[in-house]
Design a binder for these strands. Structure first.
Length: 277
DNA sequence: ATATTCCCCTGGAAGC
DNA sequence: TGCTTCCAGGGGAATA
């Protein structure tokens, strides 16, 4: 569910609820999420720490504290944060509860348990923890440029759709916005990276940023399973032009050219074979 | 080295 | 109605 716009929306919604709050205790209600929950380290490192900031790296969130440690979080497919009173009973899929000294608490719910919560070390000079050093540039950073894409693409024969999902190439794009970005850029998702010109790379950079920007402005709301905070789905819904619209008329070409669904690397891709070449 | 396949887990929708 | 199958936006390990 959550791709960059959704995670960014969560970050903004969550920040006022955690900034300046001091952790009193933690409850881990399941032994593992995606990986085993290191409850001993969580208990050792978080209580007594005050959250100062929430940073986003791709689809990851890092809760920075006033100490040397941070809380690394990934929502996986169904992860969601929720605020509650410490005495509130756990919801059915509540996995972790963080209680603050001011009698509020933060809960992490995750039906499918694909999420991540872990302690990370925060070096003074680098905002990004070592665990996330493998991530590629943020789509909005200047590092993500046509030249950069061209340099990464020219030796690669994999389909460009798969490349966009590679978090070491660019961090934050998921299955939905990959399809939507390629539609906007009028590039076929099955085209080999090496066959994408510099001009098309520039179009792709522009398209990725435009699609993600619009999604963030709409509150990141895409489809089921996602809520920013406390089940708030946001007022708007993203306009998805091809994702999930197999066999519907292409928004650009009309009824004579239906959107096609194909499977790439085990995931659905939607595109118009007519205007995306 | 690079690119797919499989797997983790659970619920909901669709098909029979 | 009830059972089965498929699908889902994540990442990472295993495999080709």
């Amino acid at each position: 569910m959550p791709e960059l716009p959704e995670v960014e929306t969560v970050r903004r919604a969550l920040l006022p609820h955690v900034a300046g709050r001091c952790v009193e205790s933690i409850q881990c209600r399941v032994p593992r999420l995606r990986t085993p929950l290191d409850s001993a380290t969580l208990h050792a490192c978080l209580p007594g720490q005050t959250f100062r900031d929430i940073r986003r790296f791709g689809k990851f969130l890092v809760f920075a504290t006033n100490g040397p440690h941070g809380l690394l979080a990934h929502l996986g497919m169904t992860g969601a944060f929720r605020t509650a009173l410490p005495c509130a009973p756990p919801e059915p899929y509540e996995r972790v509860a963080i209680h603050f000294t001011d009698r509020t608490s933060l809960r992490f719910d995750d039906v499918r348990k694909f999420g991540t919560l872990a302690i990370c070390e925060l070096r003074n000079h680098s905002p990004c923890p070592a665990e996330l050093a493998h991530l590629g540039p943020d789509p909005f950073s200047s590092r993500f440029s046509a030249d950069y894409l061209r340099s990464r693409f020219h030796t690669s024969v994999r389909p460009v759709k798969n490349a966009l999902l590679d978090q070491t190439l660019v961090a934050g794009i998921g299955n939905i916005y990959a399809s939507e970005s390629l539609f906007r850029a009028q590039i076929s998702p099955v085209r080999a990276c090496s066959r994408i010109s510099a001009h098309r790379c520039a179009r792709l950079v522009e398209a990725v940023r435009a699609v993600l920007t619009q999604a963030i402005q709409m509150g990141g709301t895409t489809i089921r399973d996602y809520s920013s905070l406390n089940g708030n789905e946001g007022k708007f819904r993203i306009q998805l032009r091809v994702y999930g619209h197999a066999d519907s008329p292409c928004p650009r070409c009309g009824p004579r050219h239906p959107v096609r669904r194909v499977v790439q690397a085990g995931r659905s891709t939607f595109y118009c074979p007519n205007c995306q070449q």
